[in-house]
Amino acid sequence: MPQLEIGDFAPQLVWLAISFITLYVLMARVALPRIGDVLNQRRERIDRDIAEAERLKAETERALQAYERELAEARARAHKIAREAREKLDAEVAGERAKVEAEIAAKMAEAEARIAEAKAKAMAEVDEIAREAASAIVAQLISVPVAGDELEKALAPAKSGTPAFAAIK
């Protein structure tokens, strides 16, 4: 078995030491720090990017909330303006209507007064006509002029709604 050749041990050990130490130095001083650096950098970069992403997300949410708040405020304001406008309009309409109604009422009162006046005048004329007619009728019937008082007395029941016969009798 060549593995048990004692004479071959020394060169193998010498070269094992040389090659292993060389490899160790190259790995420990050059290769591994490089890989470790890259891995660390990558980890840091990823952590940073995640933090940045979270910050941006929070900012977006804040902006969204602000937007919604403002939207709600604007809507409330719009409602208020609309309500105020409506109220103002209602008030104006009510005022207008009251004025018009008042005018109408005034005109109506005036018209009624006029009608009443005309009626009174007409009524007075009716009295006169009745008296003249009565005196004419009496003159025609009995050819006796009737005194004004007598005529008034005779006509009074008719004016007050009582049948004329009652008074005459």
Partner: peptide
């Protein structure tokens, strides 16, 4: 000390 460069040494260096 026998520090001869052998076939073993060669393959150690190749591995390194």
């Amino acid at each position: 000390i026998d520090a001869s460069f052998t076939n073993s040494s060669l393959w150690m260096l190749i591995a390194v």
